[in-house]
Every structure is written in structure tokens, then in C-alpha cells.
Simulated assay, not measured.
Amino acid sequence: MENKIDQSTLQVAEIQLSYKTNVKPSLRPKLTGSKDSSVVLMHSWDLSKIELVEQFKVMFTNRANRVLGIFELSTGGMSGTVADPKLIFVAALKAGASGIILCHNHPSGNLTPSQADIELTRKIKEGSKILEIQVLDHIILTSENYYSFADEGLI
């Protein structure tokens, strides 16, 4: 008895992992604290949007706390945006990150984290443990200042 398999049922997508950079490792910004992180993040922000819509970005670092890159995760409305943990971890793994710094802006100018901000940070931190990726900080930006979860003991 010959076993014939329909070849069309065996077609699957090929998955490739890659990370490309045009920045030499020695030229990548080195982070020593929340101030450094906020400066690098603010430099990457579209300042015409910082007081208009909420955006969520993730900065990835290597073991030496040098910035591998910044991933713009989402852009929402005036009072919120979606931060999908799966997409955060996909990007972190693709970049080979050892550390992540979460960041979003508050168009209102209010630096106080919401309960949703705190819960998301907790959720990401919990998920990062099994992947051995350290959540270094969660920064809230406004056009004038920043708030660091790490500096306030919330990480």
C-alpha cells in the first residue's frame, strides 16, 4: 500500500531571524541611568507628536548597556496606546537584547504613571524572566521632563 501525500499540504513559510545595524558597537550610546535613557529616547521622538498622541517605544540594550536600537511599538490616541507584550519580546529576541527599557509619552504632560502603566510594567517584567532579558526601566516622557520607574523603585 503506497502512501501518497498531497504536496500542497506540506507548504510552510520559512522563518528567518536577522538583526542588521549600521552602527559600530563602539559608537552605540552607553546608558548609565535614567537620564541617559531619557535623552536617547527623546532624541528619537517625533516632537510634533509628543503633546498630541501617545506612543510606545522600546529601547534594547546589550550586556554592556549599549543601545542596540529603538522599536516604535505603537501610536494611539490622545489618552492611550496599545503595548502588545508579544511584539515587545519578538523584537527583543530578534535584536539579541539583554535589556529592555520601556517608554511611552503622556501628551497631557502629567508624569504620574497610571494603574495600567504599572500593570503593564509588571506583566512585561514577569514575562522577561524566562527569556533572561532584564527590564531596566519604564520611562514616561513629556515635552518637558521624564519619570523613571527604576528611579522611583517600581522596577
Results as ranks from 00 to 15, higher is better:
P85C: 04
K35Y: 15
S44T: 10
K30R: 15
R66V: 04
Y147M: 01
L47G: 01
T32W: 14
L87A: 10
Q7D: 00
G69H: 03
L17D: 10
L87M: 11
S48Y: 01
V90P: 00
E119S: 11
L52H: 13
L87K: 12
K4S: 00
L52F: 12
I100Y: 07
D137W: 00
E51R: 14
S98T: 03
A13H: 07
Q55F: 09
S114I: 03
F149S: 04
Y19R: 06
T21S: 15
V67D: 04
L93T: 10
K125S: 11
L73Y: 10
E72G: 09
P29A: 08
A91Y: 02
A150W: 00
S44A: 14
E144M: 10
L52W: 06
T142H: 11
S74A: 15
K125R: 12
P85M: 10
L41E: 03
W45D: 07
I139L: 08
I133M: 02
D46H: 07
V12K: 14
Q115H: 12
T121P: 00
I139H: 03
F60R: 06
A116S: 06
T75D: 10
I155Q: 01
T121N: 06
A95F: 08
L41N: 07
E144N: 15
V39Y: 10
E51Y: 05
I124V: 15
S143E: 14
L47F: 06
L10V: 07
V90Q: 06
E2V: 09
Q115P: 05
K86P: 00
A83S: 08
V39E: 14
M59Y: 03
A116I: 07
L87T: 11
G99D: 00
W45F: 12
L102S: 02
D151G: 01
P29G: 06
N105L: 09
S37W: 03
V39L: 12
Y19N: 09
L17A: 11
L68C: 04
L136S: 04
G99L: 00
S143I: 11
S26P: 01
D36H: 12
G33N: 10
V90F: 13
I133C: 05
E126T: 13
R63F: 09
L41F: 11
N3T: 05
T61K: 02
A95V: 10
G69D: 02
G127N: 14
L136I: 08
H106D: 07
R28P: 02
L102N: 02
L31S: 06
L136N: 05
G96H: 05
V82W: 10
R28Y: 04
K86E: 13
L27Q: 14
S148F: 03
W45R: 11
S48H: 03
V58P: 05
L10T: 11
L131C: 15
A95I: 04
G99C: 05
H43D: 13
P25E: 07
I130D: 15
V39C: 07
I15Q: 08
I139Q: 02
S37D: 04
G33A: 10
I70F: 06
K123T: 15
K35S: 15
K123D: 10
I140R: 01
P85D: 02
E119A: 12
K129E: 15
V82K: 07
S74G: 08
L141G: 07
F89A: 08
A92H: 02
S34P: 04
P107N: 11
I124S: 03
R28H: 05
